[in-house]
C-alpha cells in the first residue's frame, strides 16, 4: 500500500500541494482527479522522488521512502508514466521496455520481458519501431509497458488516456483492470471522467492543492464540493473566497 501523509509542496509563495494525505492499496485502481493546476502532477513528482515535499511523508508497504532517490523507489516497486511523454526516442519500443526490465530476482531476460509486455499491451507489431515514431495513443501504452517492466507494486499513471481515441481508451480500460487483477496497485490521474468512474474503486479529488473529497465513484459523483470544483457554484465560490 502506498501511503501519503500530510504532504505539502511550496514553490516560493505558491502552495502547490497543501497537507494532502491519501492511500492507494495494491490490487486496485485508485483515482486522483481535479481541475488543471490542482497539484496532481506535483504530487506524483513527490511520490516518485522527482520533486521534494516541503513537509510530509511518503511510504510504500510501510517503508518510509520520502528521502529516497527516484531509482531506488523504482527498485522498491514504484514506477510511473508521464503526462508529457518521456520515451527514449532513438531506442526502439522493445529496447525502451527492456531497459526498464528488472534484472535482479527474476529469471526472465530483459528482451523476454519486453516481448511479454508488448503482447499483453497488444502492440507487438511496434517492437522494432523507433519510439519517437510511435503515435501518441500507442506511445502511452509503451510508457505503461516500460513502467510495468520494473515489476512494480504500484504504478502511477499521469493522464494515460490523453491522446487516445475512444477505441484505444476502451482497450486501455481493460488493461488497467487486468493489471489490478494481477495484484498491482494503480494510482490514476485522468481527465477522462467516464474512464475514472469505470475502473476506480476509490477516487480522491484535489482542488487548489487540497484534497476536497474521497470515496467510491458513486459518492464522488454526488459530492457537492466536487461538482463545485469542476463547474463552480456561487455558494461554494463565496466560501472559497472567505477562506484565508
Amino acid at each position: 500500500m502506498l501511503e501519503v501523509t500530510g504532504v505539502t509542496v511550496r514553490f516560493g509563495g505558491l502552495m502547490a500541494v497543501r497537507d494532502v494525505s491519501l492511500s492507494a492499496p495494491l490490487g486496485t485502481v485508485t483515482g486522483l482527479i481535479g481541475p488543471n493546476g490542482a497539484g496532481k502532477t506535483t504530487l506524483f513528482n513527490v511520490i516518485t522522488g522527482l520533486g521534494a515535499p516541503t513537509s510530509g511523508r511518503v511510504s510504500l508497504d510501510g517503508v518510509d521512502i520520502t528521502r529516497l532517490a527516484p531509482h531506488k523507489r523504482a527498485r522498491l516497486g514504484l514506477s510511473r508514466t508521464f503526462q508529457a511523454l518521456q520515451l527514449f526516442g532513438t531506442l526502439t519500443v522493445a529496447e525502451n521496455i527492456a531497459l526498464a526490465a528488472r534484472r535482479k530476482g527474476t529469471a526472465e531476460k530483459p528482451h523476454e520481458c519486453a516481448a511479454r509486455l508488448l503482447e499483453f499491451l497488444g502492440i507487438g507489431h511496434l517492437a522494432d519501431t523507433h519510439a519517437h515514431n510511435v503515435p501518441t495513443g500507442q506511445a502511452r501504452l509503451v510508457e505503461l509497458g516500460r513502467a510495468l517492466a520494473t515489476a512494480p507494486k504500484l504504478v502511477l499513471l499521469d493522464e494515460p488516456a490523453s491522446g487516445q481515441d475512444p477505441d484505444e481508451t476502451e482497450h486501455f480500460k481493460g488493461l488497467l483492470r487486468q493489471i489490478a487483477a494481477d495484484g498491482v496497485g494503480v494510482l490514476l490521474v485522468e481527465h477522462d471522467i467516464p474512464l475514472v468512474m469505470g475502473v476506480c474503486s476509490q477516487i480522491h479529488v484535489l482542488d487548489f492543492g487540497q484534497l476536497i473529497a474521497r470515496g467510491t465513484p458513486e459518492e464522488i459523483r454526488r459530492d457537492e464540493r466536487v461538482i463545485a470544483a469542476y463547474l463552480g457554484t456561487e455558494e461554494v465560490d463565496t466560501t472559497e473566497a472567505a477562506a484565508p
Binding site: G49, Q86, F88, G89, L91, A149
Partner: peptide
C-alpha cells in the same frame, strides 16, 4: 541514450542516473 532523451523518466525506470 535514455539519460539524454528522457531525463525525468530514466530514474523512474530504476536506473541510477
Amino acid at each position: 541514450i535514455a539519460i539524454k532523451e528522457g531525463p525525468a523518466a530514466v530514474a523512474t525506470c530504476g536506473i541510477d542516473v
